[in-house]
Design a binder for these strands. Structure first.
Length: 356
DNA sequence: AATGCGGGGCG
DNA sequence: CGCCCAGCATT
């Protein structure tokens, strides 16, 4: 049977008491230092962010000194940490705090949330750590813990799934004794026990009810729909025509359009037309004799963008003036009637555009 | 709902 | 190499 929120929180706090991380921003906590640490730790591992936090506290020990800081100096301290908009937003938020709140860090969730660079996560973190307000943090650690424990298999980046996660997290918070300790425990647990890969399920206090563990799905949750990676390619097509028709080449490589007929082509890493040098140097691999080519690029016939599921193709079409019968080469064939062969839709679009 | 934003660590 | 990290702003 699944734990009640109270039972869950009790186990979590028992774990926390033994395993809590001792981190510099936990001692002498004030809203400014917590804010600073939370911004630095956005999408940044504790190990990477810690030295930056220490440098900042040293140079700007309190909100007053930070408000007076130059943006350039803040950016200099931020150097190498990445996501530099965080630094610019902190600077802007400091001015907001100065002007709107008389230099005092706001002490309620809504006002904190309104500051530049502070979203739901950071507002909840500051509200709970600095002011013991019962707002549940939902960061990567909490998402992982909640989705695994409750067996939430849907794409967690979807709004519906995320609001379910948020409401479960908040329900736990609603039954917590001390908001700061609860949020801290949730995140420490996610970071140390319920890790992204190779979580420590054997020693986990929830391993008798964690749905993901019981269903052997720990490595499948949290789930995110795989993002398709689109690679950009640049095709330079050679249009060689004479009275016998147009030259096509059947594609045989392990690549898109295998087995289909297509124009002979040079692929490069830019949409710029290949130089004559490149053009001629590539001819041997196309098995075209140099002497056959009169003018490599007589004119540009067309240029278009073709989007496939995994690729974005920028295609240029060059009219090539040739003197001899290239189809002597077995790789190429002249075609007048395209009705009986297969070819990519990119080629048929080109044909339509040519009004042939 | 989807993207851009960085640099580092991990398997 | 792909994924993830104490996310947010912008579109």
């Amino acid at each position: 049977m699944i734990d009640t929120p109270k039972e869950f929180n009790l186990k979590l706090q028992q774990w926390h008491a033994l395993n809590e991380r001792d981190l510099p921003w936990k001692s002498n906590a004030n809203a400014y230092k917590i804010w600073l640490s939370e911004i630095i730790l956005q999408q940044t591992q504790v190990k990477q962010g810690t030295p930056y936090y220490l440098n900042f506290v040293k140079k700007y020990p309190d909100i007053q000194s930070f408000i007076k800081a130059d943006l350039d100096d803040i950016l200099a301290l931020w150097k190498g940490l990445g996501y530099y908009s965080r630094a610019r937003n902190m600077y802007e938020a400091a001015q907001q705090i100065n002007e709107t709140f008389d230099g005092l860090f706001p002490n309620n969730y809504q006002d904190i949330l309104a500051l530049k660079g502070i979203g739901k996560y950071t507002a909840a973190a500051i509200a709970s750590f600095a002011y013991e307000l019962p707002h549940a943090v939902v960061d990567g650690n909490v998402i992982r813990l909640i989705t695994r424990y409750y067996g939430i298999t849907g794409d967690y980046t979807r709004r519906a799934t995320m609001s379910k996660i948020e409401s479960l997290a908040q329900k736990l918070m609603d039954h917590a004794i001390l908001p700061s300790s609860h949020n801290q425990a949730m995140m420490d647990f996610g970071a140390l026990q319920c890790k992204p890969s190779n979580p420590l399920c054997q020693s986990c206090p929830f391993n008798n009810q964690c749905i993901a563990y019981l269903n052997n799905q720990v490595d499948k949750i949290p789930f995110k729909t795989p993002k398709i990676k689109k690679t950009t390619r640049y095709f330079h097509y050679l249009v060689l025509m004479n009275h016998k028709g147009i030259i096509l080449k059947q594609r045989t490589n392990e690549d898109i359009w295998k087995g289909l007929f297509d124009l002979p082509m040079i692929e490069s890493d830019s949409s710029k037309p290949p130089s004559e040098e490149t053009f001629f140097s590539i001819l041997p691999s196309l098995k075209i004799k140099k002497t056959c080519i009169e003018r490599p690029i007589k004119r540009i016939l067309d240029t278009r963008k073709h989007i496939l599921t995994h690729q974005i193709i920028f295609a240029n079409y060059y009219e090539v003036s040739s003197t001899c019968d290239i189809s002597q080469n077995e790789n190429f064939q002249y075609f007048k009637n395209l009705g009986t062969i297969g070819y990519p839709s990119l080629f048929s679009k080109f044909l339509k555009g040519q009004d042939l």
